Simulated assay, not measured.
Amino acid sequence: MTLSAGKLWGMRRMADANGRFKMTAVDQRPPIKKPIAAKRGLAEAPWEDVAGFKAMLIEELQAQSSALLLDPHFALPAGVHRLSPTKGLIVTLEDSIFRETEGGRLSSEIDHWSVEKIKRVGGDAVKVLAWYRPDADPAVNRHQQDFTKRIGEACARYDIPFLFELLVYPLARDAHQTKDYVEMQGKRADDVLRSVEAFAGADYGIDVFKLESPVEAASVPGVGGEGWEETQRLFDEMGRLAGRPWVMLSAGAGKEAFRRILTHAYRAGASGYLAGRAIWADAFEAFPDWDAIRSGLRADSVPYMDALNRLTDEAALPWFDHPLHGGSTRVSPPDHRFRFDYPGFDGVA
């Protein structure tokens, strides 16, 4: 497949030299703000605390990362100067405050933030999370689809990769209710798979999927574990439906559970991971003892990432070897016509 110049460069920047994604998420907002506010005994977490933790994550975990995912509220302004220019910069666009309706959740962009601004600050990719349930109200699903398509079109216009994350969530009729950014209890594999299928069309402009396990994390046996073949079948189907390079998210899974998930994902053709809490949540529990947090990241998170990276090197599919790209990625057109045909932001060459 021929890639546009900006998307090709962004994909290469996100991955390591061998085309595998080892990406660390530092863009979480509620999962970091809520614990800090609770420990401080405040209604709202102080900006300095949230930003300080994110800056520490950048400092301590970037050596093991091919790219880091930052948010414009805290991580970008507080930590981008700490980020090595050899690392890829992914920037989040979705607002962490979604709108809950009777028919389902509605996503939106962060106010005063856009694909254009992410491109202007030097971002290598745009990340967006959309909550989705195939059985939600049709009007809600149309909103989520239009939201995604609008961002995909902007990413095409500004020639920057679109990294798209999907999470299923509880509807009002479900037994397990939560608004936290955690894996939905009692989720059905069919909901996860149908969600991926819903956004696999080329009109959404997605370059990389960031996907959750189709099976609850605690129930994933890992390749070779008891009953692993049925779980593998679901991961294989998810990879087939994605139809493009994809990575795994951790969704708050524990360290060992996430490692088991990756064994299935890599066997199914995933190209790496984009994870946060599985990597740093244990160290974060020491807040507000900053020295203990840093020690925990160095003693626990870094060795864990080293282990994930060895697994990724051994088993993940380089993104450019995905059947969509077929091992050959070139800009278009790949000859002397390039400067004449390459369009500006207005679409005019």
Rank of each mutant, 00 (worst) to 15 (best):
A218F: 12
A63Y: 13
G205F: 11
A316I: 01
R277M: 08
R267H: 13
E256Q: 15
P323C: 07
A25K: 02
S332H: 13
M14H: 00
P170S: 02
W113L: 10
A278C: 11
D306K: 14
I293W: 13
H325D: 07
T329Y: 12
M11S: 00
W246S: 04
A286W: 11
P214Q: 05
A268K: 03
F199Q: 06
A265V: 12
A218N: 09
L249R: 06
F21R: 02
R133N: 09
H143V: 10
H73R: 13
A154I: 06
E237H: 11
D282T: 13
K39A: 12
E314P: 03
A15V: 00
G19P: 00
F258M: 14
L262S: 06
L106G: 02
T263E: 01
Q62C: 13
S301N: 08
A67I: 09
A198G: 10
L166Y: 05
A268D: 07
L317E: 02
L308K: 00
S66F: 13
F209G: 04
G326M: 04
G344Q: 06
K22D: 01
F284G: 07
V26N: 07
I206D: 03
A51D: 01
K187I: 00
W280Y: 14
E285P: 01
L249I: 11
I151Y: 08
E230C: 00
R12I: 02
A17E: 08
A156V: 07
R233P: 00
A75L: 04
T231I: 04
Y181V: 08
K54N: 02
E60W: 11
P138S: 09
P343Q: 00
M1D: 12
T2Y: 14
R294H: 08
Y273T: 00
T101D: 01
E183Y: 00
K34L: 14
W9C: 09
D282Y: 11
L171F: 11
R298M: 08
D16K: 01
R12L: 05
D335N: 14
W228C: 03
G327V: 10
A275E: 03
A38T: 08
W246E: 03
F74I: 05
D16M: 00
L167H: 07
R260A: 11
W131C: 06
T92E: 09
G201H: 10
D159V: 02
S213N: 12
R337P: 02
D236Y: 12
V126E: 04
W131D: 05
P245C: 02
V91G: 01
R330L: 15
E314V: 05
F53E: 08
A38K: 13
E285V: 14
F340H: 15
E165K: 01
T312H: 04
E229C: 08
S66Q: 08
M238R: 06
Y342C: 07
A268W: 12
D313N: 11
D346I: 00
A316L: 01
W228T: 03
R142M: 15
A63N: 14
G186C: 03
A268H: 10
I151R: 05
G269Q: 07
V140N: 07
A154T: 05
D190I: 13
R173F: 01
L70I: 11
Q144F: 07
T148N: 03
A316T: 06
R194E: 14
T329A: 15
P30R: 06
E226D: 13
S195R: 01
P30E: 03
F209Q: 03
K54Y: 07
K255S: 14
G205P: 05
E94K: 03
